[in-house]
């Protein structure tokens, strides 16, 4: 199993330059809004979620993770016509959870990243559906096939995308 338990001292903490920290989420949001027009199946992806997981795991700081998740989620909400805060809440939880996991486990290799993304995609969807149904009273339908397919697709994408985003990491 590629996930290894490490002591706090062994885990490397990374930081990002200001342009990278601002532009990467914005580019993810832009692609998420633009690409489904060209490739309809692209709406299955959740690039902002992958960026939240990547930043949270790399920074390994719970506060930074939840703030990043909250901000990106709120921006994603503002592109939809739904009330603002649904993606915000889901991504805040994911940001907090991913950074907590990143502080405890070494999730730098491809297999670990795949599994971590798979898990947090599921967490994100559960929280989102709970908020949508419980608080906003939206009649969303839960489809297992759709969710499992989305989770696998996003996890596979994360494994590739995170390798690309590793170039922007700087040792803290």
């Amino acid at each position: 199993m590629p996930i290894t338990y490490t002591s706090q001292e062994q885990v490397e903490v990374y930081r990002f330059s200001a342009p990278a920290a601002i532009l990467i989420p914005l580019v993810a949001l832009f692609l998420q809004a633009f690409l489904p027009l060209q490739l309809h199946f692209f709406s299955l992806f959740d690039l902002p979620l992958l960026v939240v997981i990547f930043f949270a795991v790399a920074r390994r700081s719970q506060v930074a993770g939840l703030l990043t998740g909250s901000l990106i989620g709120l921006l994603q909400d503002s592109l939809t016509h739904q009330p603002i805060g649904m993606y915000g809440i889901a991504k805040t939880v994911v940001g907090f959870g991913a950074s907590s996991l990143g502080a405890k486990l070494d999730v730098e290799n491809v297999g670990a990243r795949f599994l971590v993304t798979l898990f947090f995609y599921a967490v994100h969807e559960v929280v989102y559906f709970t908020v949508a149904r419980g608080l906003v009273k939206l009649s969303l339908q839960w489809s297992w096939g759709h969710e499992i397919g989305g989770a696998l697709l996003n996890a596979a994408t994360a494994a590739l995308l995170f390798t690309l985003l590793d170039r922007f990491k700087q040792r803290a």
Partner: peptide, 20 residues
């Protein structure tokens, strides 16, 4: 950290409730 998480979630839930 957990307190900050709860506070941020609370603010967002409150915001949602107002919007709804």
């Amino acid at each position: 950290n957990v307190t900050i998480l709860v506070a941020i979630l609370f603010v967002q839930v409150l915001g949602l409730a107002v919007q709804v």
